[in-house]
């Protein structure tokens, strides 16, 4: 049985090596968060946006370490290709074909060193674009490269 002892020694050495590695450098494993679901958050689900008007999109973002960038995108949802993740579902209008749909996208850096931030972005709805169901997608990254996303269904009206 002598050789079995040698094996167990080797095994012990192997697992010791594995254990040593557990004392590793601190890494950031937390995603940032993003929400529009607070008083002052805009738009709320199913919000009506009028053509020719300007609105300020507001969302709260937070991270344990440091926020990095955010993006806002608005595209038509006339074909119902996607839907939002808010608690109350928004009734969508019948499927239509886009003629001159509104497209809005922007991305920006969060000022350096922040763990809490309120996104504020002005969007002006042109008077000539198609009315109907639109989809607003918001996302945020932290300095590590983790991303959080949320989305809101909105309507553009006359």
């Amino acid at each position: 049985m002598k050789s079995y002892n040698q094996w167990s020694l080797l095994l012990l050495g192997f697992f010791a090596l594995a254990l040593v590695s557990c004392t590793e450098t601190e890494i950031d494993e937390e995603k940032p968060t993003i929400t529009v679901n607070y008083s002052g958050g805009f738009p709320q689900t199913c919000e009506n946006l009028s053509r020719g008007q300007s609105y300020t999109i507001k969302a709260k973002v937070a991270d344990n370490l440091e926020l990095a960038s955010y993006s806002i995108e608005m595209h038509h949802n006339f074909d119902h290709h996607t839907h939002d993740d808010q608690e109350d579902p928004c009734e969508l209008e019948p499927i239509t074909t886009a003629v001159n749909p509104f497209n809005f996208s922007t991305n920006n850096n969060v000022p350096e060193g922040l763990t809490n931030f309120e996104i504020e972005a002005v969007v002006t709805i042109p008077t000539t674009i198609d009315t109907g169901d639109y989809h607003l997608a918001l996302s945020v990254t932290d300095v590590t490269g983790w991303q959080a996303r949320t989305s809101v269904d909105v309507k553009i009206v006359e």
Partner: peptide, 12 residues
């Protein structure tokens, strides 16, 4: 393939 903190046309 490193996920960066940047966006291109609203995609990470």
């Amino acid at each position: 393939l490193n996920p960066t903190a940047d966006y291109y046309e609203t995609l990470q």
